[in-house]
Design a protein around this nucleic acid. Structure first.
Lengths: 118, 118
DNA sequence: GTAACGTACAACCAAATGGTTGTAGATGAG
DNA sequence: CTCATCTACAACCATTTGGTTGTACGTTAC
């Protein structure tokens, strides 16, 4: 199986973006109606610039989008990003199930043919 | 809603652990049979110590477990960790669906009562 | 017993991260 | 027009991260 570098880098960005409680909170806050950056910044005990950076990280990971609204910038959650991340984790669980299943099969075979104690 | 600091820190660790392609690969490799640390290290173009550190990060995030086997240390994937992370993402999607649904309702109301163009 | 193996851990380094302040450019309100 | 607001971005700083090498210690094989 060839490693898909692009996809890997994308996943790095998505998980990294989620690895910060402020950013997770931002995603929650901008889900639905959306908010401008200042509106977001008011909720956190940090500078406007810091919030701006967090939004930039989320944007690079395609978890939110920014849209100009006059002098404001409307930040909104991007559902596709969330879904992609979730699917990846489901994939890992699928691998787990598959391998765990294979082992169960092997054990079952062994039992059926009395190989567990030669 | 009170912020659950413990849980937040836990999520930080889980997502951070996943935010590295080597670590994601390690999780795949130790799903099922498990592998000792040297066995893992052979697959990567980096030092044994580096792989050891990656395993430590995964262990702190409860995504893998280590188990002594004589002089070796068997690394195995911990399904619970994976499942927890996936559920969290599903939760975010649920928030999305809920709010998106509410908006859809509001829009529907508006249309029904002719509020969209006063 | 000794040599080879598998692991643990410390010390170090470059680069990335998460925060700050400060400056400057657009846009909207009065 | 002028002023307040919203945003963008650079420069800086402390800490964390992801990697290295080197050393030490328990276990297994011969």
């Amino acid at each position: 199986m060839v490693v898909d570098e692009l996809r890997e880098a994308e996943l790095d960005r998505v998980f990294r973006a989620f690895a910060d409680s402020t950013r997770r909170d931002i995603v929650r806050r901008v889900t639905g109606d959306g908010l401008n950056v200042s509106g977001l910044a008011r909720h956190y005990a940090m500078s406007f610039a810091a919030v701006q950076k967090h939004v930039a990280v989320l944007e690079r990971a395609c978890l939110v989008t920014k849209e100009r609204r006059g002098r404001e910038q409307l930040v909104r959650a991007n559902r596709d990003g969330l879904e992609r991340a979730r699917r990846l984790l489901e994939e890992y669980e699928a691998i787990w199930r598959q391998r765990a299943g294979r082992i169960a099969d092997i054990l079952a075979e062994g039992t059926a043919q009395g190989r567990e104690a030669p």
